[in-house]
Each structure stands twice: as structure tokens, then as C-alpha cells.
Design a protein around this nucleic acid. Structure first.
Lengths: 203, 203
DNA sequence: ACAGAAACGCGACATTTGTGGCATTAGTGG
DNA sequence: CCACTAATGCCACAAATGTCGCGTTTCTGT
């Protein structure tokens, strides 16, 4: 009766602390650095392992595919480069955010990160839901600009705040990552104006 | 005086017809087929060469990088799967186009093509202008829907017709290729409505 | 039809990428 | 502190990727 045999069945056998955690972190950091520098194409298990100071086989064992490695290194990356102001009038808050996004997208290294995210999703369809969660969360945070304005009583309640943000930034990402067109100030302003219009006429 | 020595200086030495043209075409076709089936990640010089029935070295000599090969195979690809109607009311024309784009984007093989285009631009920055031309032309064609409506006298002249189309389809591409969110009918309708609003209130 | 040259096929080779076995190290639970 | 074992490092090896030289084919201009 005092047998503990079945207890070992659900005992945790996977190691999460100590060296394993250290290795995992350095590999993830190294992968992110590789993506920042050369983009998805130039990143490899070998280059990441070298930079992280671990063996090549270790990286292969933990992340069998390059796509998963890239995704793991990017998800959870708290990017504080984007401004999420919620004090001024909504319009200026939105304008400030759109501007910071545009500026971020024209930074080659940052652009590499987003392209890596896309490439990873393209190579491994099972990663699409991970990426979906990443963007969902990101838009929710951005939607705070709108909800804050509602709370201040500045504007009427909005049905889907995240959708407003999505519409505002979509053209920016489209031009930066897909159609490779220049993003000038007029384009940013237009995006902001359209978002503001959505708040004024929620039809 | 009758010397033709300097004529040979600017004589065309590159061969464009016969076998060379045949090889080029079969390789490009093979590359496109590879991209359709497995996407950018699974395409390789070897797989393309095998499918095209040419030697591996031949592909390497003509297209030193995978990115250029992919881009070459995609540019000039006249896609007749997208509807460009210009008869009905603008709103229905736009709705029809947005719907066909959305349907196209949820087709995995087609999605592979766009992702390959993005990946190629990401790997080789010099290809960004090529891709830019591809999209510029594509949007110009789509803008025909708007200009036709103007010509019919249905709506007032629009400053930048292509921009209207760009704003309409950006969220579709954003969800399909970047944020990996589902594109439902309401989302399509909203995109169309916003485009129509841009025509009504060109502010 | 003919000569010159560009493009191709073929094969050898170096490098990179990916996998498995095995001894050693170092967390984990007792 | 000790036994157990997951995780790592190291090595060997197979497969894929990329490059080069050379003989042959075939395009192009005369």
C-alpha cells in the first residue's frame, strides 16, 4: 500500500532548471541575434549553436526545424519600441503609434524579424496558430489606445477596438513587408485618418 | 575602312534563342510548380533541375541564388484568378474583387506563391524593387475598377485609385500572410465598405 | 555550310546540413 | 550526500548543397 510505483508515472522527468534553462535561453538569444543581423535565410542551426556556445546537436535535438527555432525565439519578445500612448486625444495617440510602427518597419534588422516570423509560418503550418496568438495579443495591446479614449469619455464605445488598429496598421505592414513600397508621411496620415473615421462613424 | 573589328565589340554574345530559351522556360516552369506544391522552403536548385530535366549546375549558373530563381519564376505571372469586373456599380465590383482575393489567399498553393515572393525579397534586398514593380502593376490593374466607374460618371474623379484598392486589400493580405487570422465574410464586407467610403468622402 | 563561342551535361570535390550512438556532465529527488 | 537519469558534448557518418573544370552540344554570324 505504501508503494510509490504509480507515483513515478506522473512524476516530472523533464528538466527545466539549471543548465537546461541556461542553454535554452542562450540558444534563443543567439537565434534572435542571428535573425536580427542576417534574417531568416542566413540563420542556421550551426550559426546559432556557435553563437550560443553550445553543440550543434543540442540545438537540433531541442528544435528539430529551423522554423520552430525562429518562432520560439521571437514569440514572447516584448517589443517596447512601439509607442502605446493613451493620454492625448485619440487621434494623436494613434498618429504616434502609426509613426513608431512605420519607423520600426523601415529598420532593416526589425524588418528581418517580421519576415522571419512570416517565413516560419510559411514553412511550418502548425506554427500559424502560434503566430496568430502573437498578433492577437499585439493588437489587443494596441487597442488599449482606443479603449482608453472610451474610458475617458472622449469617444463613444467601439465594438471592436482591435479591428480599428488592425485596419490602421495593415497598409503599413503591407507596404513594408509585401509590396515593398515607400511609406511616406502622407500615407501614415491617411491611415490614421481612416482609423479616426472608423471611431467617428462606427457603421 | 571595311574593317568590322570594332563591330564585334558590341556584338551580342549572349544567346537568347534555341536551347537556351527552352532550358530557361522549363526551369522557370519547374520552379513555379515547386513553389506551388511545397512553398519556398521545399524548393531547391536540385529539385527544380530534376523536374525541369536539366543539370543541377545549369540552374546554379543561371540563378546563383534561390531567391532570384523564385522571383524570376513568379514575376510576369499573369494571374487570371482574380476578378477585375468593371460593369456593375463600383461597390459590387469591389466586393467581387475582394471576395476573389480572399478566396485566392485561402488556397494553400497560391498562398505559397505569395509567401515565396516575400521570402525572396527578404533574402535578397535587391529583389525588393522587382517585387515593388510587380505589386505596383497589380494595383494599377485593380484600380481600373475605380477609374471605370469614374468614366461611367458613377462617381467623382478619384485622386489615387490604386490607393483605394491598396487600402481595401491590405487587411486581407495582412491576415492571410502575416497575422494568420481567419478572413470571414464580415471582414471582407468591412474592407469593401471602407473602400467605398473613400470614394464617397475623398477627404 | 562553316568556324567560333556560348551554354550545357557530366563528374569530381569541398562545404553545409542533418542524424545517431556513446561517454560524460550535472540537475533532481530522496 | 548519494543514486538516478535527463541533457549535453563529442564523434562519426549520410545526405544535401554549392563550386569548378572539361569535353560536348548547339546557337549565331558570316
Amino acid at each position: 500500500m505504501s508503494e510509490g510505483s504509480e507515483v513515478t508515472l506522473d512524476s516530472v522527468k523533464e528538466r527545466t532548471g539549471g543548465r537546461s534553462a541556461r542553454v535554452r535561453q542562450s540558444v534563443l538569444d543567439a537565434a534572435r541575434a542571428e535573425l536580427l543581423e542576417g534574417g531568416y535565410g542566413s540563420m542556421s542551426h550551426a550559426s546559432v549553436a556557435r553563437r550560443a556556445g553550445v553543440d550543434r546537436a543540442t540545438v537540433y535535438r531541442r528544435w528539430p526545424s529551423k522554423a520552430r527555432l525562429a518562432m520560439d525565439s521571437l514569440v514572447g519578445l516584448a517589443d517596447n519600441s512601439v509607442a502605446f500612448p493613451d493620454r492625448g486625444p485619440v487621434e494623436s495617440d494613434l498618429r504616434e503609434m502609426a509613426t513608431s510602427v512605420a519607423k520600426l518597419l523601415e529598420t532593416p534588422s526589425i524588418s528581418h524579424l517580421f519576415q522571419a516570423l512570416i517565413a516560419a509560418q510559411a514553412e511550418d503550418p502548425s506554427l500559424r496558430e502560434v503566430g496568430a496568438g502573437f498578433w492577437k495579443e499585439r493588437l489587443e495591446i494596441g487597442a488599449h489606445i482606443v479603449t482608453a479614449a472610451v474610458d475617458r469619455g472622449e469617444i463613444d464605445p467601439v465594438e471592436d477596438p482591435a479591428h480599428v488598429l488592425e485596419v490602421m496598421i495593415s497598409p503599413l505592414y503591407f507596404r513594408a513587408l509585401i509590396s515593398c513600397q515607400e511609406i511616406d508621411q502622407a500615407f501614415i496620415d491617411d491611415s490614421v485618418d481612416r482609423a479616426v473615421a472608423m471611431l467617428a462613424f462606427p457603421g
